[in-house]
Design a protein around this nucleic acid. Structure first.
Length: 567
RNA sequence: CGGGGUGUGGCGCAGCUUGGUAGCGCGCCUGCUUUGGGAGCAGGAAGCCGGAGGUUCAAAUCCUCUCACCCCGACCA
């Protein structure tokens, strides 16, 4: 393919509205252009990358026994009413009405549509297992779209839904998908890790996320240095709390702490380490307040809080609510004297231990407040995020916390949707049973962004071979010289015959421009053809990632590249 | 939604404090020269200064309102 015929609008400067590496480079390399916040056009090079990713996904999904369908993006509200998600999905659901004022949404996910399809068409256990997948545009009105393709309001997703006769069959399917996902992410050339995850709004029992390790990731991953344990921070369990017994025989003492409203500030002001404090936070659960106590050096994990309280919605109380509950200003809240609400605490808060707490009074805190003596806690749970000092919940080993980008997610759904929508089949005994379902997502467009996050340098992108927009870029230095251009054409044709996709840099540009753009685009190999070398029958072969350049004879170029190509 | 920031030729920015002819670099078009890591010279095209209202003889600049986008937090592939 000729460069001069392709729309590859590269940019010299970083665009002002991009912050992350992948976002900047996708704009600079002419892969995407923004249309609105979280909405992008994919340009020819972007589409080529995407197609290659899709091809790998299709192959692996098909190998794992799934079959491709294409479900509608436009979906009627009725189906969503059946599962209750028309209400529950909230503002993230892109809703619209047709000319008859009937409600529709643009699908953020397809459990409803696929379950509807299967309940209508599948009657017998003999038709199971069934696993349907599609690669399609999803719509989510994200609270905050960001980082280009990383979190868009419209994005391309591969989603698959499996239907099995019973739990053990469903688990077999789940494992097959889990392993197919490993193949997929290995083939697209990403460094990733599968971690235990929360199942979120989609619901269901067990779930794993596939995380690409990268600084710019939006998730924290907890993983053990010694054993195989790895989990999303949202999910990461904590075993027995570290028991600290700081008994104090002194009675509770009110101290002056003018304007010290944060643990950070208090710790400095009183010269006491943060773990000696107890934070008192208020959450509104089903319109009722709950006080949550947690050590000053810890953070509340809202996912765990929701699970332990067995609710799906909760919110941090606003200033007004806090003042009503504590009868004191925000920033000085404490558990002493609170009435009419449940007080719960993280398990690291230990009965009999003395802490510094808010006094529910402006500019005052209490020292020597002892749990069980000066105030009581109704219930203890695992409520906090893991911190680097915590032991691995499985083996007690050392853990590390890294950033990751979620590119895939597999869920065991069970019968949640089949029950809600009355999707049943007849088993061998002729008895009606609900399908046991699983669902499996991959952020296809996000993989493109994640790949760049992992594969770039100061000059630009270096694509993993398997998903690069082209395999080789052929660069004639003096495109006007007939001999040079002929050699370039000849090499291009020969490579194409060998199955390479080749970008021929035929633009009338200076050498520097071609080199810099080539490095920016990140095609894995560059064949540089210059008059000087050509007179000796040689060309230059450059590996974009390593920067290594070798001189090879024209006859050997193709052979060399075949040797370098990953199968 | 809360907090912070930015909107000026295609891209990156200056000008705004102290109102008075809209500017710079890159890119783009023409020509000549150059040609192995973002060329030089000459000529040229291109901007309702995000939008609306106001103040003023006069607004990119001051005031009010609005919209869009980016970043930090709660959601997720």
């Amino acid at each position: 393919m000729r460069y001069s015929k392709l729309l590859i609008p590269t940019l010299r400067d970083d665009p002002s509205d991009a912050e992350t590496i992948s976002h900047k480079l996708m704009l600079r390399a002419g892969l995407i252009r923004k249309v609105a916040a979280g909405v992008y056009s994919l340009l020819p090079l972007g589409v080529r990358v995407l197609s290659r990713i899709e091809k790998i996904i299709r192959e692996e999904m098909t190998n794992a026994g799934a079959q491709e369908v294409l479900l509608p993006a436009l979906q009627p509200s009725e189906l969503w009413e059946e599962t209750g998600r028309w209400q529950k999905y909230g503002k993230e659901l892109m809703r619209l009405q047709d000319r008859h004022n009937r409600d529709f949404c643009l699908g953020p996910t397809h459990e409803e549509v696929v379950t509807d399809l299967v309940r209508n068409e599948v009657r017998s256990y003999k038709q199971l297992p069934l696993n349907l997948f599609q690669i399609q545009t999803k719509f989510r009105d994200e609270i905050r779209p960001r980082f280009g393709l990383m979190r868009g309001r419209e994005f391309i997703m591969k989603d698959a839904y499996s239907f099995d006769a019973d739990l053990s069959a469903a688990e077999t399917t789940y494992r097959a998908m889990y392993s197919a996902y490993h193949h997929i992410f290995r083939r697209v050339g990403l460094h990733f890790r599968a971690v235990e995850a929360d199942s979120g709004l989609i619901g269901g029992s067990s779930s794993h996320e596939f995380m690409v390790l990268a600084e710019t990731g939006e998730d924290d991953i907890v993983s053990c240095q010694q054993c195989e344990y790895a989990a999303n921070m949202e999910q990461a369990e904590l075993v027995s709390p570290q028991t600290r017994s700081e008994h104090s025989d002194e009675s509770m003492l009110s101290v002056s702490t003018p304007n010290q409203t944060s643990i950070e500030a208090l710790s400095a002001f009183l010269n006491v380490s943060k773990d000696k404090f107890l934070k008192t936070l208020f959450f509104i659960v089903d319109e009722r307040p709950v006080a949550v106590l947690i050590r000053g050096d810890h953070e509340v994990n809202e996912i765990k809080l929701k699970k332990n309280l067995n609710v799906t919605e909760l919110a941090l109380a606003d200033r007004e609510a806090v003042e009503r509950i504590t009868k004191g200003p925000v920033g000085f809240s404490g558990p002493v004297g609170l009435e009419g609400l449940e007080i719960i605490a993280d398990r690291s808060v230990v009965t009999g231990t003395s802490y510094i707490i808010g006094a529910n009074e402006k500019d005052r805190h209490y020292r020597h407040a002892v749990v069980g003596r000066d105030f009581d806690i109704d219930r203890f749970f695992d409520l906090r995020n893991v911190v680097p000092d915590d032991p691995c919940p499985r083996c007690g080993g050392t853990i590390s916390i890294d950033r990751g980008i979620e590119v895939g997610h597999v869920f065991m759904l069970g019968t949640k949707y089949s029950e809600a929508m009355g999707a049943t089949f007849l088993d061998q005994q002729g008895k009606s049973q609900h399908f046991v379902m699983g669902c499996y997502g991959i952020g296809v467009s996000r993989i493109m962004a994640a790949a760049i996050e992992q594969n770039h340098d100061e000059s630009g992108i270096f694509w993993p071979q398997q998903i690069a927009p082209f395999d080789v870029e052929v660069i004639p230095m003096q495109e006007k010289k007939e001999a040079v251009m002929n050699a370039a054409l000849e090499i291009t044709v020969t490579l194409e015959k060998q199955g390479f996709e080749v970008l021929l840099e035929d633009r009338k540009e200076r050498a520097g421009v071609k080199f810099n753009d080539a490095d920016l685009l990140g095609i894995p190999f560059q064949v540089v053809i210059g008059e000087r070398d050509l007179n000796e029958g040689m060309v230059e072969l450059k590996n974009r990632q390593s920067g290594e350049k070798i001189r090879v004879s024209i006859e050997d170029v193709v052979t060399s590249l075949i040797g370098l190509r990953l199968q």
